[in-house]
Write a protein that binds this DNA or RNA. Structure first.
Length: 585
RNA sequence: CGGGACGUAGCUCAGCCUGGUAGAGCACUUGGUUUGGGACCAAGACGUCGCAGGUUCAAAUCCUGUCGUCCCGACCA
């Protein structure tokens, strides 16, 4: 490609819209331009990178037995109603209406469509395993698009779906995808690691997210330095809080005491109360919609004062994601007190004359001498003996792990790292196949639902994650595998027929014939401009051809981020190919 | 959805507080000089100051509303 014939609008200054480095570089290097919040146009350079990432994904997916298909982006809402996600995923669904005023759903993912396909096509165990995948645009009504391509309303996703006749088969399919994902992200030049992920209401232990460590990520990953444990914080467990919950027998009866104006954990930690946070019980109230009865019921959740409720774990325990925090008004009508003075002590709850569902975190088990709200504004209760005074309906792991707590596998302190989620593999089981009737006959002639798995890669997000990880002060440093062009030739004068230009053209021709993607900077620009642009865009290899070195029969080979090397003109192509090979390793 | 900040030339921003002829740098056009890490000189072109109301003799500037962008939060009492 000739630079003068393509379109690479680099920017010297950073547009005000970008906050994080990768987003700034996306714009400065002429990779994307924003149409509006969360929607971007890929310019020629950006599209080339995107296609190369897709190429890596295709190769590995095909090698792992994936079959590429292309499913509609417009879905009939009926299949979403059938799976139940018309309700549960309601918030992220974009909807459109046709001229007959019929509603359509814009695809945020395709379990419903692919399962409908399977329902019609798969009838025998002999047809499986099957793994369909596609690379296509997805739509999600994100609550807040941000960071350029990281969280957008529209993005490109590779989504794959496996169908097996047995659990063992499904696990093998899962493992094949897991392995393929490791190869894909490694080939993209990304430092990445799989972590155990929350499986939400579907349950089961088989879900991993592929994370790219980055401070700008939106996920917290809990990990053990031994490498034996890593999990999304939504799922992570530990040996428990560093400081234990008090369990000393006091034998004192619960005692209500005035705490005017004290409505936070911190208020009670402070003088004159001086109650350590680990000795307090935090009382939360949620409105939960029961799947069985369709009724919305309040649920009381207890965690230790210095702990945070983990919503994903809570959802897992109650078996639904349809819940919300109760409003202050609701809470007052239920408990007769405002947030900040709530408690689940049996005697004060009984006074309200209702039967309550009380979920409590394991860290509270056995706690004695605890303090919590009295369900009366301005009062708390002390000397609480949890086994004696609180009627817990169900215990569970509800707290969020903190850095420094001990790893259950190794006993070493856990660490927490921010990360970008670029891929997710998930064993679905039969949730969708049952609801959408994807059944087959097994070897005994028995009808069974297909056992499914789903596997996603955020392609556009991966592109930005690579930039976030591969850069220096001068710009992007593309890994060879995904670079828009692998070699940038920089003739320092472009006079037709000049030795400089002739040499550049010759190298250009030979590299192109060798199958290398080359761009030649044939713009009538000063050398500084060409160097800066090449560095900013991040071509892996730059070759400078100027009169100075050419007079000595040499050209300059400069790997991006490496050191400049003079090579004989006649050896140039061979040296460039060797440099590419070295960089690809 | 709540809070905050910001909307002035293609881009980065000043001007607004204290109302009175619309500004700079970069980019762009033309000419000249330059030519190995984002050149210099000269001349030019480019704006309904986000939009709509209001106050005023007069609004980029003050007030109200609205739209957009970005940031933080959206249970953690």
């Amino acid at each position: 490609m000739r630079w003068s014939k393509t379109f690479i609008p680099t920017l010297k200054e950073t547009p005000a819209e970008a906050e994080i480095l990768s987003h700034k570089l996306l714009l400065r290097a002429g990779i994307v331009r924003k149409l509006t919040g969360g929607l971007y146009t890929f310019l020629p350079i950006g599209l080339r990178v995107l296609k190369r990432i897709e190429g890596v994904i295709r190769e590995e997916m095909n090698a792992a037995g994936g079959l590429e298909v292309l499913m509609p982006a417009l879905h009939p809402p009926e299949i979403w109603q059938q799976s139940g996600r018309y309700e549960t995923a309601r918030d992220v669904l974009y909807k459109a209406r046709d001229r007959a005023n019929k509603e359509w759903v814009l695809s945020p993912t395709a379990e419903e469509v692919v399962t409908t396909l399977a329902a019609g096509e798969i009838s025998s165990y002999r047809q499986m395993p099957l793994n369909f995948y596609q690379i296509s645009v997805k739509f999600r009504d994100e609550i807040r698009p941000r960071f350029g391509l990281m969280r957008a309303k529209e993005f490109i996703m590779k989504d794959a779906y496996s169908f097996d006749g047995s659990d063992e088969g499904a696990m093998a399919s899962y493992q094949r995808m897991f392995n393929a994902y490791q190869r894909i992200f490694n080939r993209c030049g990304l430092k990445n690691f799989p972590v155990e992920a929350d499986t939400g209401v579907i349950g089961g232990s088989h879900s991993h997210e592929f994370m790219v460590p980055a401070e700008t990520g939106e996920n917290d990953v809990v990990y053990c330095e031994s490498g034996k444990y890593a999990a999304n914080i939504e799922k992570a467990t530990s040996a428990g809080p560093v400081n234990p919950t008090p369990i000393t027998e006091t034998a004192l009866a619960p005692e209500k005491f005035p705490t005017p104006g004290a409505v936070t954990i911190a208020n009670l930690v402070a003088a004159p109360y001086n109650v350590p946070a680990c000795q307090q019980i935090k009382t939360l109230v949620f409105m939960v919609k029961s799947a069985a009865t369709d009724q919305t019921q309040p649920v009381i959740v207890l965690v230790r004062g210095d702990d945070e409720l983990n919503e994903a774990k809570f959802a897992g325990l109650i078996g639904t994601t349809i819940f919300r925090p109760a409003t202050a008004e609701e809470i007052f009508s239920f408990l007769g007190a405002h947030p900040g003075s709530l408690g689940a002590v049996a005697s004060t709850l009984a006074a309200e004359g209702k039967k309550w569902t009380v979920l409590a975190d394991e860290a509270l088990r056995g706690g004695k001498g605890m303090v919590t709200g009295a369900n009366a504004d301005g009062f708390h209760i002390r000397h609480i003996d949890i086994p004696r005074d609180i009627a817990v309906s169900q215990w569970g792991d509800l707290r969020t792990v903190k850095a420094g707590e001990l790893c259950l596998a190794t006993g070493k302190p856990l660490k927490i790292q921010r990360a970008i989620e670029v891929g997710h593999v998930f064993k679905l089981g039969t949730k969708y196949s049952e609801k959408l009737n994807a059944r087959f006959l097994d070897a005994e002639g028995k009808s069974k639902p297909c056992v499914m798995g789903c596997y996603g890669i955020g392609v556009t997000r991966t592109l930005q994650a690579i930039i976030e990880q591969c850069n220096d002060k001068d710009g992007i440093i593309w890994p060879v595998a995904v670079a828009p062009y692998v070699v940038c030739l920089t003739p320092l004068s472009i006079a037709p027929g000049s030795a400089v230009m002739e040499t550049a053209e010759k190298i250009y021709k030979e590299l192109t014939e060798a199958g290398i993607e080359v761009i030649i900077d044939d713009r009538d620009e000063r050398p500084g401009v060409k160097f800066k642009d090449a560095d900013l865009i991040g071509f892996p290899i730059r070759v400078g051809i100027g009169e100075k070195s050419l007079s000595k029969g040499e050209v300059e080979l400069k790997p991006r981020g490496g050191t400049l090397q003079l090579v004989k003109t006649e050896d140039a192509v061979g040296q460039i190919l060797a440099a590419i090979k070295a960089k690809s390793a």
